[in-house]
Structures are given as structure tokens and as C-alpha cells.
Design a protein around this nucleic acid. Sequence first.
DNA 1: ACCGTCTACTGATGCATGTTAGCTTCCGTG
DNA 2: CACGGAAGCTAACATGCATCAGTAGACGGT
Lengths: 247, 247
Amino acid sequence: MEFPNTGDFLAGRLRDKLGHDDLEYIESLVVERREAETGEVLLSRGAIADTSTILISGYMFRTIESGNQRFIVGLHVPGDFVDLHGFALKRLDHNVVAAGPVVYGVAPHEQLREALEERPRVARALWFATLLDAAIHRKWIQMLEQLDAPRRIAHIYCELHRRFELIGQANARSLRTPFTQIDLADMCGVSAIHANRAVGKLRELGLGEIRRGDLYTSDWDALRKYAQFEPDYLYGDGPLRFDQDWL
Amino acid sequence: MEFPNTGDFLAGRLRDKLGHDDLEYIESLVVERREAETGEVLLSRGAIADTSTILISGYMFRTIESGNQRFIVGLHVPGDFVDLHGFALKRLDHNVVAAGPVVYGVAPHEQLREALEERPRVARALWFATLLDAAIHRKWIQMLEQLDAPRRIAHIYCELHRRFELIGQANARSLRTPFTQIDLADMCGVSAIHANRAVGKLRELGLGEIRRGDLYTSDWDALRKYAQFEPDYLYGDGPLRFDQDWL
DNA sequence: ACCGTCTACTGATGCATGTTAGCTTCCGTG
DNA sequence: CACGGAAGCTAACATGCATCAGTAGACGGT
């Protein structure tokens, strides 16, 4: 994966929503490429940022700290802008942390502001990206209200798998992540011990084997059914399909 | 409360973020005022809307249905646009339901689109509103991951109280809502029976009395402490204060 | 090779919450 | 006034999950 101007690493989720020149334009906003290690805090709550960040490879967490405890409130996959909201809100209400080794790009707000003013299609695509984040948040709320721990874990992996499908990077029999069981626990709102039992239950049920964060399964459909996973909220190809005409 | 052109019922949360003429402009987008009864579904998942809705009085729920069960994933108070995201996403991923008797305004997308193009400050204020929704979603995720049922209920009332403060409608000793204990249960992801226990516990602890949805308390601070409520995420006056200069 | 640390895993016990069932109070309506 | 439905409430038992205690393997540093 080269950089810059390769034309295939950026704006993953928007890839088939925008024309070639808009995509190239978005790429051109990224002036620098950086790397970070597991656990590195890329953006801190309360800090004022003058750049926005796009994830190129790896995973990032959105976390909220509260009394020595960490809560994971969102996940990001390659191609996601992780802090577009920081552009408009100025100060972030949460942290952004590297879930494993990551590569990311940096886009100065100054140039983003210019983009918003001069490229209405790009402006709306970026707005769409933040609205998609909100839709995913809502699904997590429902997931936490409805599902028990094993199903929450299954749902998270199903969501990630679908998100990788949407950027053409899904694998038929596995999904590789750097997540520890502690990470899974912090996403699901359960203790690490219980996350371990939940992982054990998925194995026991024959739905999937999670080893060092990597999920191996022979039957995604069974896993999706178990987790009651319905992908509509990701605005891919289903009934809620994102309306391209609008852009 | 008259209509239209009263200048004081709309854009509650944006009131002190925009100038007078921008507020008037937003008001002018609302071409019709309507009413609805408890439980009425104002917007259905999957439907295509050509208008956006602003809540004038009462409460609305955002709900997701799943297998005969209803999950409440968000709340709205007067002055909130409840479906701005419907404007950009076209199809909604969830329902919007009247939590009690409501009055609301309707703004055609056509005019909103014009507003976005001709009034960059208004466009950014509306974007801010959707980002604020997302920040609230994140807080709910954390709340569900961290708190037990009594604290979740307390947190929800503290959040509502603060949101009413921000639009100048808070009451020092009470907060009136039309919520049933079933509604509270569906917000907290617990059974109705357990919501009842949680309400009983708050009463037992002397933190507040909830009767037919109305909360009476003599000590908001104690309630906030119990719920570990930190209002920063609402982007009011705290350290995360919304940056007016930016608009 | 040794040590400490991090991650995965297991069992025992208690609290939080779900489920089922039945009862009461309130309120609108015939 | 009688009635019925919806909301609030209570009890008894079952399950989910937290907590505490402890073991074992992987890994990096010395």
C-alpha cells in the first residue's frame, strides 16, 4: 500500500459513493502518514485538535474513561475518519486509541474547511460518515439493551465482518483483530472473566473460535443468526441502502 | 406559545449559539405545526421522508424494534430536530415515537437543502446538532456498560434535567415526564419488574421519588453523584463547551 | 536461564436481573 | 355506579454476571 496518491486506501466506506475525482480530492487532504503502537492514545478527551485523522490500516477504539475504568464506545476499521466530529465540536468528548499497530493519515482542519465550502458533494459525504457513526452507536445501544455477553461478542464480530465486506477486505472463514479478552469485555460492558466465559460459550456452541482476538468460523450465517445481526444499519446494500443520487 | 414567528420556541439547543436572524431563518423553515398523541409513530424505520421534524413540546423516543420487543435508543426534548439524519441518510434506521402528547413542527427537505447551501452558519449548526446526538449516544453506551439499573434511571433523569437547563426550562425540585416504568425499562435494557425495583431503590435511598414518570427530588447534586453524571458531553458550559467562534 | 508481567483460563460464592404469576390502584367509560 | 384495562407493585425462583482466588502459558528484559 503506497502513499500518497494510490487511490485505493482512503475513504474506504465512501468508495462507491463518490466519483473518482472527489475521492482523489479527499486523498489530497491527507498531508501526512503516521504509525502508532498498541494502546497509544492518538486523541485525548478535551484536547483541541486542528487536524482530523483517517485510519489507513489496523483498528482504533473510541474510549471513555471513568474512575480508573475504560469503556469502549466505538470501533473503527480502515477507511474511517475517526474524528470528523472533532472538527465541528472542537473538543472531543472521548479518547481515540490504537487497538493494535496502526497506520493513519492526518488532514488539517484548514483544508477540510476549504473542502466543505468548495465541494458540496464532499461536505455531504463527510456528514454522511458522521451520521453513519451515529447509526452504529444506536445499534450498540440496542445490542447492550438486548443481548447477553456471548451474543454481544458475536454481534461485534459480525458487524466488523460486514464493515470489511463493504470495503472489500472481508475474509470468508476468519476475521483477524488484535483484541484481547479485556478489550472485548470493555466493549461489552462485562468483566474480563465473563468475556472469557462468553468466548468459551461461542466455542462450545460450535459457532466460532476466538484465539488472540482472531475469530475463526465455518458458518457466518449461524453466527449472525445467533447474534440477531441485521446489517441494515450500516447502510450498505439492504433496504436502508444509502441513496447515491442525493450526493 | 404562538406560531409561527414567535422567536422563542424553536432551535432550543442552538438558541445561544446562533444570531437572531439565523434563528429566525431556521424558524421560517417550519411550514406547519402538528400534534400527536402518546405512542403515535411519527417516523417509521425504512420510510423515505421529505420533511424533517422539530419537537416543540413534549418528549419523543427513538426506538428500534426487534422481535416483538421495543428498545429505546434515544430521547428528545423541545427544540431538538429529531430526524435531521433522515435528511442525509434518506431512510431512517429507527422509529420516532411520541412519548406523550406532543407538538411538533415540520420543515420540508427542499427548504433545508436551500438553507444548507446559502447559510453556512446554519449548515454547521445543524451538523453540530447531529454530532451532539452522537455524543449523547456514546454516553448512553458507556452508561449501559457501566451502571446498574437504579443508576441508569438516575442518569437519564439527570441528563434530561441538564438538557432542560440548557433551554431554560429546568425546574429546581422536579422533572415532569409522561414515561411509564415500561418506558424506563426499555431505555435501560432491563425488565419492567426490575425498573420498578430500581425506582423503589431510588426512593429508599432518599434520592428521588418517581411517580407516573415525574421525578421529585430535593437534592439534584446527590442524584447526580449517585448516577456518576458528568454533563460535559452535552457541550454546555463545561470544559467541552461548544466553540461559538467556529460558527 | 531467570524473572516479572500480561493474557487466558477455572471454580466457588453472592449479587443483579429475568421470568412467571398474581394482586392493587387508578382512571376512563358504559 | 360497575366495569375493564393499564400501570404500578410484590413474591418466589431461575439465570446472568461480578468478584475473589488461584493456575498456567506466552513474552520481553536482564
